[in-house]
């Protein structure tokens, strides 16, 4: 039984579907973790879910990174623990310095809420290992998802295989038209150097039931189990 912890910040709003994604399978035990408590021990995966933590005050994720639980999340990740940040969770991970770069306002100032295609790149992280080349339709819902970083950081991400996901068309081409927010190099998700921290703007937990249009999000939610 793998233990999954989903952190609840004030303003988080994707915790129910994120928890459910794991609770519907017998191999997981998923529970909520309150932001204002130290991180409990014994988890195999910690998730920072989507939402608007602290109302996106100042910058998305800027305040949540100072939550009490985040001290434990940083420590957990430094020891090699798996951390997954989805949407606002990705923003928090960059603000906390656990992932490089930042997420700026979408290039057309528009909140994008739609299904887009993403392709898994060559990336040696337990979250996406063996999924290279797969193309998934995934829901996005964000106003601040434009990944930015300086050229040096971008080159480092490419060279180290830290780019996990790119926005693409239905044939897997990372074209400007398939980029919903102006992210540099069509980046939709990255991992840290060690591969144990993964942040992505799309919501795999919203594409995990035939009732909501498909189950393609499952690979990104469960793949790590086979590579622990």
């Amino acid at each position: 039984m793998k233990r999954v912890g989903v952190v609840l910040f004030p303003g988080t709003n994707c915790e129910v579907e994120t928890l459910r994604a794991y609770q519907i399978q017998d191999r997981f035990n998923a529970e909520l973790i309150w932001h204002n408590e130290p991180l409990p021990k014994g988890f195999d995966l910690i998730i920072l879910p989507g939402g608007w933590s602290y109302g996106d005050t100042l910058r998305a994720g800027a305040i949540a990174r100072f939550s009490r639980v985040m001290e434990g999340v940083v420590e957990f990740s430094k020891q090699g623990g798996l951390v997954l940040g989805i949407c606002n969770g990705f923003q928090i991970l960059t603000e906390a310095g656990l992932l490089p770069g930042a997420l700026a306002r979408n290039s057309k100032l528009r909140f994008r809420c739609e299904t887009v295609f993403c392709k898994v790149e060559h990336c040696n992280s337990p979250f996406v290992r063996s999924l290279q080349g797969k193309i998934y339709p995934l829901p996005i819902a964000h106003g601040e998802g434009r990944f930015v970083a300086d050229d040096k950081t971008l080159e480092r991400l490419e060279a180290n295989g830290q780019i996990a996901l790119r926005y693409c068309n239905n044939r897997g081409m990372a074209t400007p038209e398939s980029n919903p927010n102006g992210s540099l190099r069509n980046i939709a998700g990255i991992v840290n150097r060690e591969g144990n921290v993964f942040g992505l703007m799309p919501h795999p937990e919203r594409r995990n039931d035939p009732l909501v249009g498909g189950t393609e999000g499952a690979d990104l939610l469960y793949n790590w189990v086979m590579h622990l």
Partner: peptide, 8 residues
């Protein structure tokens, strides 16, 4: 520490 994000 908070007011600016040094990345951008």
């Amino acid at each position: 520490q908070l007011l600016a994000n040094p990345v951008m």
